[in-house]
Design a protein around this nucleic acid. Sequence first.
DNA 1: ATCTATCGGAATGAATCACTCCGATAAAGA
DNA 2: TCTTTATCGGAGTGATTCATTCCGATAGAT
Lengths: 214, 214
Amino acid sequence: MARRESRRGRQAEAERNDRLVLEAARTVFAEQGAGAPMSALADLAGVGIATFYRRYGSKEELLQRLCLLSMEESIASAREAIAAEGDGWSAVAGFVRRCVDARVGSLGSAAGTIAVTAEMTAASELGRRLMEELVGRARADGTVRTDLTALDVSYLIEQFSRSPRGTEERANVSGRLLALALDGLRSGARREDLPGTPPDWETYSGRWYHADID
Amino acid sequence: MARRESRRGRQAEAERNDRLVLEAARTVFAEQGAGAPMSALADLAGVGIATFYRRYGSKEELLQRLCLLSMEESIASAREAIAAEGDGWSAVAGFVRRCVDARVGSLGSAAGTIAVTAEMTAASELGRRLMEELVGRARADGTVRTDLTALDVSYLIEQFSRSPRGTEERANVSGRLLALALDGLRSGARREDLPGTPPDWETYSGRWYHADID
DNA sequence: ATCTATCGGAATGAATCACTCCGATAAAGA
DNA sequence: TCTTTATCGGAGTGATTCATTCCGATAGAT
């Protein structure tokens, strides 16, 4: 029988692999795009290819699972950020950092190539509402530039989720660039308004529903 | 015989294609990575595949040419920025904008997969010197944060060169995010220092000399 | 009317990919 | 100790994709 806490032997290996496999998939798909070969995930995880297929029936299923986990992580982060004390900018910055850390939004390259499940749609809409609230509050308390929209923040997360962090040096660089961008979110005297028009959700989410097929 | 100015007919088409082909290659490799198929370039350019092979002997040769053109564009931009009047931040911001516009630095994904020519090495070193000067001056006049290095700027350009601009909406988003990041370069009271350590050139350029082969 | 430069894209052979199958390994239980 | 069972890694497979070549078509130029 399985022990309640910390199983042993083969079962422990399987549990370890559960995490290993998911983390490797996140990293590789984030950095190389959804077109990355399954063998690349296996190499990074240090396991055989079959270890992936024992857990997920297909590459598409794995991608769907990753998308859903991303959105759930993003929702949890947004809730915490909204509940946190402190000024609006700090809340937004903390939220963005956590999302980038978890590589939320790194799967844009899968848009149009995998089916969108009902769960994904629901999570996406909840996430959107929470982000609107978070950014709205930050604008209201004056610590974030007033022309910033929640969707700008989404795109920002998406962009930084993709940057490579495989080596210490790359992770270091990534952290510096993110710090720069986050400082750019602050309200401030010397700033000009953001150029162009606020992005729209239609375009942002529409990517997922129209396949890339000719 | 060919007329001096504006050739006609087939020759004009060939010249038009010269530009079309190069621009399509820049865009596709920037957005999809160096692994993009040649057919994708042809589709975007609206020409046949052979039109590429009539101009460049191989994919590798095309990538080398693009790299060199990128670096030359970057050098020209840096020279203009250094010569320009105005404060240091504006010079750096203008430089970055122009580089991102030209997709300089979007070929990082080709690193390790193509041979580095002597011309490329030389251009890279000159570019580096000019950027050090540009950023050094901007730091000195107090309009840019003092912990910013030239290499941070290089990585910034690289990151933004990859963002998709295929539709008006995506170009718009890209412009907004870049504006945010550029504002983050400014010196300012409320800022904390950039985290981590300054990136080093060894790592930055080293990517090109060690193939991805196992 | 013929020549010639250039074109587009089908054809080709090599390489890569998603996914399956199976022999090996080691924990658990008799 | 010996068998059972869960899990493992990676070679094997058929389908797909890619870089590159080749050739018939097209339209200026002469």
